[in-house]
Design a protein around this nucleic acid. Structure first.
Lengths: 205, 205
DNA sequence: CTCATAAGTATACGATCGTATACATCAGGG
DNA sequence: CCCTGATGTATACGATCGTATACTTATGAG
């Protein structure tokens, strides 16, 4: 078996779009977010991304210059809207419950969301150091900074980083490794265990 | 730029080994552990693994059947010795400090250890579902089971899984994403923040 | 010493990757 | 209406991947 199995008939026939640069660009971005979040940077192929957007691979490079450029645009797009952090975070004393619910919701074992941090976690083992740099900067600018500011107190950046680490770890173990206790246990039970841990990091020493 | 840069002159010229099946097999395993931990399953190439073991790629397949077989043998080898969990865990009330020190030690931003869980975290976004299955079973058998047994109490498996998630997340953010507060802050400071969080999960609700 | 066999190598195949070059076609302003 | 530029496609190239087939070479038993 060379490489990997490829039963890829494309979920919907992708009816032809009237020529519209903006719409095409966004369609490519959506497809790229899905692919990068599902398979990581190295695992997602330009031809697959293009096909699911209803275009050819070369058009992707015409819009975004290269795969690196596409990744940068896609992670920027992802970080700007559908993230647990940033969209109206609650008071500090309910942050643990809020973030725990958020991570459990966005890492349901069956679906693959368009989340930016998930994209980055999955892309983390790429061989391309520039891709790591791109993602790290986005996470630090959008998630780390926001969260650290919301926390305050001593070592706010480090505590925020540990919260992000815990969230990333749950993403890894729940969605990528499919660790049984995280994949099978009810979200309510997990929430009760996870929330106070995040809250402890939020409150500080 | 097709694929990825390849400045790979091999660190040491790898002097020829006297023909010895057992030694060759172990050399391949060591090289594989390093490569899988550094680049993940998809990112590590058989030719690179073979070269760093001083053999050719085909010999790897002769010893282990396939890349999948090599991964299975490598992760089994890794889990059997150099892991934070399993090697003489201390009393329950000092578990947080012990595991925090362990994860910070094995994820120093500069080195790439031969750790099995790191191999699996980095390999988590492979497109090969059998590889995920192999790694998941190893983690559950070697780490999760051991840790849950040491914890005891309600939801021991889930609490153990969350501890493993936190450890995996720190690995991701510290070694793969290179998140600044985790990469630059002193291990002592991080330890002081991380230990009580793990301890809280160890103690239970 | 010899020689069967284990240990290791050389070469090639088919597939997939990112992307460069050249070509086709639609859409709107004149 | 028409034609120019924007939008999109076809094809191909070089590289790398995992691995199958065929070959070479060293080693230890007799």
């Amino acid at each position: 078996m060379p490489r990997v199995a490829k039963p890829k008939p494309a979920k919907t026939p992708v009816e032809p779009r009237r020529r519209d640069a903006a719409a095409t660009r966004q369609a490519i971005l959506n497809s790229a977010r899905k692919a990068f979040a599902a398979h990581g940077y190295d695992g997602a192929g330009l031809r697959e991304i293009a096909a699911n957007a209803g275009v050819t691979a070369m058009l992707v490079n015409r819009y975004f210059g290269s795969k690196e450029g596409l990744f940068e645009a896609a992670i920027d797009d992802a970080m700007s809207d559908a993230s647990v952090i940033r969209k109206g975070m609650p008071d500090l004393d309910s942050l643990g419950a809020y973030l725990a619910a958020g991570v459990l919701e966005t890492t349901r074992p069956d679906v693959t969301p368009l989340d930016g941090s998930l994209m980055m976690v999955r892309s983390g083992s790429t061989t391309n150091p520039r891709v790591i740099e791109i993602g790290r900067k986005q996470i630090e600018k959008m998630h780390l900074k926001t969260l650290a500011a919301a926390l305050g107190g001593d070592n706010a950046a480090e505590r925020a980083a540990l919260i992000l680490s815990l969230i990333a770890g749950v993403q890894v173990m729940r969605q990528m490794i499919h660790l049984t206790p995280l994949a099978k246990t009810s979200p309510a039970t997990l929430q009760k265990l996870l929330a106070p841990v995040i809250q402890q990091l939020a409150d500080g020493a």
